[in-house]
Design a binder for these strands. Structure first.
Lengths: 151, 151
DNA sequence: GCGGAATACTTGAAGGCTCAACTAAGTTGT
DNA sequence: ACAACTTAGTTGAGCCTTCAAGTATTCCGC
């Protein structure tokens, strides 16, 4: 309340509401079509797009902005489901590599277009091309200032 | 991937990243300053702004876009913490009213300005006034089409 | 090359969220 | 007035995330 202008406050609440609903929709969609939470699916996609489809836990966590603990639990669960497997680096035996399996690749290929459809239906079908550019610029500006104190 | 333009995909990922980090920051802030998750704090704020500081479970859930189940768990926990109390309606004995307590009011008043500072630091300090308007319009358009199939 | 600090990740407990099943109370049709 | 249906909310199990603490390995200074 105090400290934000009316416009800021209204935009803030609208943003929180929009993301609450988007996240909910995406999570239900991931669960339905892929049998996993959306947060897990994002990890699979990142691996899928990585050359070799393999990353160390730390690198994966950093790119996803997940805590290492969260990722450890997630990877353990996804390994049980067969979408990926872990292997210790021989080079530095503290690091664990996470490798996407064939089953994981198939799952990404299956879920990906369904996800895109959902995102278009929920978000982009309602926005102009100009608004997409604006949204990109706005969110990029916010992401920019992460973990840097404040302006 | 398929089905989204490059611009859409880039904006989408940026949005997911921005909201992931914003939610995380707000949650840590709510936990630190108010001793509760941000989702709980939002319920307190809504009650705070409601005349009489009292709402039925269903009305509260609808405005927050929470499931009734989620809200039941949340309210049970917040009642234990003393921020609100429940009372059955005598009019229709299925409905439960949720009333903010004095302790809840104090908590909202304490957390609110700290929250605003956090939001400004993380988000609005990086945006122009024009971008705030744009963000409002964009998120409003997304929220607009909720629970309506698709365009 | 040894002791201490740093790095990379894991673990377990506690709490929040979802989903499906359930209870209780009001409404409707006949 | 009674059965069937609907509405309002609760419950419990299971999974996900966080947080604090722990393990294992490597790096650094001397």
């Amino acid at each position: 309340m105090s400290g934000l202008t009316d416009e800021q406050q209204h935009a803030w609440r609208s943003l929180m509401l929009a993301t609450l609903v988007l996240d909910g929709a995406l999570d239900r969609q991931s669960q339905r079509d892929g049998g996993m939470p959306h947060a897990y699916y994002k990890a699979l996609v990142l691996l899928y797009e990585t050359p070799g489809r393999r990353l160390a836990m730390g690198a994966l966590a950093a790119q996803l902005r997940y805590s290492l603990s969260r990722l450890t639990h997630a990877v353990a669960s996804m390994e049980k489901s067969g979408w990926l497997r872990r292997s210790r680096s021989t080079d530095d035996r503290r690091v664990q590599f996470v490798q996407l399996t064939d089953a994981g690749i198939q799952t990404v290929r299956h879920v990906s277009p369904l996800q895109a459809t959902e995102v278009r239906a929920r978000a982009f079908s309602r926005l102009t091309a100009e608004q997409v550019q604006q949204l990109d610029a706005i969110t990029a500006a916010i992401v920019q200032g992460l973990d840097s104190p404040t302006s």
